[in-house]
Amino acid sequence: MDCEQLVEIVLPGIVEPEGLQVRRAALPQPGPGQVLVAVEATGVSFAEQQMRRGRYYDQPPFPFVPGYDLVGRITATGPGTDPQLTGRRIAALTKTGGWASHVLLDPADTVPVPDGLDPAEAETAVVNGITAHQMLHRHARIRPGQTVLVHGANGGVGQLLAQLARAAGAEVIGTASARHHDALRALGVTPVDYRAGDVPAQVRRLAPGGVDAVFDHLGGRSVVDSWQLLAPGGALVAYGSATTRDDTGSKQWPVLKILARTWWWNTLPNGRRAHFFNIWAGRSLHRDRFRARLRADLTAVLDAVRRGEITAPLAARLPLTDAAEALRLAESGTVTGKVVLIP
Rank of each mutant, 00 (worst) to 15 (best):
I258A: 13
L302M: 11
Q202A: 15
C3H: 12
R307Q: 12
T262C: 15
A108K: 14
G188L: 12
D118L: 08
I9R: 03
A168G: 06
G19D: 04
V305L: 14
L117W: 12
S177G: 15
G33P: 06
K251G: 00
A76C: 06
E331Y: 02
D106L: 07
R289K: 14
V35Q: 02
G174W: 02
A323P: 10
N154L: 07
G155F: 00
T75M: 06
P208L: 12
R295D: 06
Y239D: 04
E331C: 04
S101H: 04
L327S: 08
P107S: 11
V211M: 04
A125F: 05
D2A: 10
L136H: 10
E8Q: 15
V340N: 00
L268Q: 15
P63W: 08
P269L: 13
T334C: 05
P119T: 04
G233H: 10
P79F: 03
T244K: 14
I130D: 02
A315G: 03
L6D: 00
L117N: 02
G282H: 11
A92C: 13
H137V: 05
V15R: 14
W99M: 03
R273H: 15
G158I: 02
A196M: 09
P144V: 08
V223Y: 06
R73Y: 09
S241D: 10
P200S: 09
V335C: 01
L218M: 11
V211P: 00
A47C: 04
A324S: 14
A292I: 10
H286L: 11
E40A: 12
G155A: 11
S222H: 12
R185G: 10
G152P: 13
L184N: 07
N266A: 07
V189Y: 01
R73D: 04
D118W: 09
R143H: 05
P28G: 11
V111M: 14
V189F: 05
P83A: 13
P63I: 08
K257D: 08
G333E: 07
S284T: 14
G13Q: 13
Q59N: 06
Q50S: 13
A281P: 01
V192W: 04
N278F: 15
V35I: 15
E123A: 13
A324P: 01
A76Q: 11
Q21N: 04
A38K: 15
R185S: 11
V113E: 05
L93P: 03
L218G: 00
A323W: 00
D106P: 08
D58K: 13
V39P: 00
A260V: 03
D193Y: 06
L164E: 00
Q228E: 15
Q34A: 14
L327P: 01
L160D: 00
A326I: 06
A242Q: 13
A91H: 09
R307D: 14
L149S: 03
W227L: 14
T299M: 08
G169T: 07
A25H: 13
K251R: 15
Q252V: 12
G67W: 02
L93I: 12
L314H: 07
